[in-house]
Design a protein around this nucleic acid. Structure first.
Ligand SMILES: NC(=O)c1ccc[n+]([C@@H]2O[C@H](COP(=O)([O-])OP(=O)(O)OC[C@H]3O[C@@H](n4cnc5c(N)ncnc54)[C@H](O)[C@@H]3O)[C@@H](O)[C@H]2O)c1
Ligand SMILES: NC(=O)c1ccc[n+]([C@@H]2O[C@H](COP(=O)([O-])OP(=O)(O)OC[C@H]3O[C@@H](n4cnc5c(N)ncnc54)[C@H](O)[C@@H]3O)[C@@H](O)[C@H]2O)c1
Lengths: 235, 235
DNA sequence: AGGCGCTTGTGAAGGCAGGCACAAAGTCGC
DNA sequence: GCGACTTTGTGCCTGCCTTCACAAGCGCCT
């Protein structure tokens, strides 16, 4: 914006998704006292190719020095600024079941520019109780003070996820992280990202099955066969 | 393979990643008694464009009927088979902390072709205890019976993740789901997928910042400013 | 039995992302 | 002060993914 002349709009989505990885790699390097890093070294730490890394960083501007590399501290600041981490973003977790509890107790948020500010549930037994130093409230209470820039984390059962999302959108939230295994319909301008365990495992199962098929055409499928014998064998 | 003449190799990765979503949408439709669905309807339920859906399904073969649509039951079977879900895959969760507990207690696995079979930790206080009906063991015990087709889920702190991954690879595992925020180095042929909270939030923060910038050039940044006043204001 | 309308499956085109390779640019040593 | 070495930034090319658009195919209705 006004204070970032080099930051042109239109950073590719794929690049944005990798910036946090670079940021973490840089944090690791900084912790070991390194103060300058080449694209080759940083790429190695981030698990990408160096050409890709350089192209990604070039979208932020020219913060490298040819023949030397990147200044670790400087690059961290630039990436963090690009991601908007110069602010502490508020996070509301909706649904304080097994997963919600684990998330609330997780310390990894605070260390990275995020502050869990609200814990929400609809269960009367939970509302009012204290978890990880916060008092659980209900959606109505959250709606009374909807801060701009709030990020909503949905950890309710899938059946409730859409209605929760609707209420969040209603109160002006336009960034949602969804743990419920379902598709959320939201208006344009609202960004939903999903974390889906079952999907990830199924993708792994696909690769596992194919890796196996390649090792041997009829390799023994040691995975437990499904108990209920299926009648139609072939089709 | 032998019983699937239509299943040609080389399904694009992007398509594989969407198949689980289609599968879930189909399950929802089947539950409501629908027995035939058009690409338009299914695409709507899955949150994608109908053309994309049709192209994705075409990689599996021609299971649709022109002028009618797809048979819900049949399509579910075909997708499930392609993903390798005719088997129950064994899952080992390594690291029984906050997250590991939540995962072990999660019922969403079993219902989708996955069976949590081993819970692993190195903490002597945890090894031997029972969680969600299973006895926690250590890595050595897991290594004595490494079943082919095992999927490893890493839920340890990031510092331990690489060594855990190494041991899993050693015992023949080549599908890993990593919850620890770090990059894992593995040999070719081993598939690692990561679930990374902090990354997802940071990506959301990026979009949040830009959505805000578009609404008004100098819109009020209501997000709490970082407490430690930063000396260098602009650059 | 034949036409009509609906939906699939897919060729073609456009866009985006990844990788290669090298010129530009800056540093270090002498 | 200059040359040689190192590393960045980027133009180009290749391949994958997405979207469009339509012909082929199927069932239903008359
Ligand atoms: N637990 C896991 O490891 C895990 C893993 C992957 C995905 N998930 C998904 O995460 C979600 C939560 O999982 P969980 O195990 O914590 O479930 P849970 O049943 O333990 O907790 C759900 C919580 O949401 C609350 N809730 C329900 N409707 C609500 C509403 N309308 N508004 C506010 N709160 C509401 C309930 O009171 C309950 O406390 C589920 O969708 C699940 O599929 C969980
Ligand atoms: N809790 C969350 O909500 C959450 C969210 C996102 C990411 N994560 C990540 O998931 C991981 C686990 O988080 P957590 O909150 O459960 O941590 P935790 O500290 O509660 O649990 C870690 C567990 O791993 C075990 N462990 C450590 N080293 C081990 C080894 N070498 N072999 C086997 N077990 C070992 C420990 O004994 C402990 O029980 C962390 O990397 C964390 O960053 C957690």
């Amino acid at each position: 914006m006004t204070d970032a002349p080099a930051a042109r709009r239109g950073i590719p989505g794929a690049t944005v998704a990798r910036l946090p990885v670079y940021l973490r790699a840089l944090a690791g390097l900084a912790a070991t006292g390194v103060d300058t890093v080449s694209s080759e070294e940083l790429a190695e730490a981030a698990g990408v190719r160096s050409a890709k890394l350089r192209k990604d960083l070039s979208y932020l501007g020219s913060y490298g020095v040819r023949g030397v590399g990147y200044d670790v501290v400087r690059l961290r600041e630039e990436i963090a600024r690009e991601l908007g981490l110069q602010y502490d973003w508020s996070v509301a977790i909706i649904g304080m079941g097994n997963l919600g509890h684990a998330l609330a107790a997780y310390s990894g948020f605070a260390t990275r520019g995020f502050r869990v500010t609200w814990l929400v549930d609809e269960d009367p037994n939970l509302v009012g109780s204290r978890i990880a130093g916060l008092t659980v409230i209900d959606m109505d209470a959250l709606a009374t003070q909807p801060p701009a820039g709030l990020i909503g984390v949905i950890a309710t059962p899938p059946t409730a996820a859409q209605s929760v999302a609707d209420r969040l959108v209603e109160m002006g939230v336009h960034s949602i992280l969804n743990f419920a295994p379902c598709v959320l319909a939201v208006p344009d301008g609202v960004e939903v990202r999903k974390v889906d365990l079952a999907t990830e495992l199924q993708i792994l199962a696909f690769h596992e099955q194919h890796a196996r098929a390649e090792l041997g055409p009829l390799a023994d499928l040691a995975a437990v066969e499904v108990a209920d014998a299926r009648q139609e064998a072939t089709s």
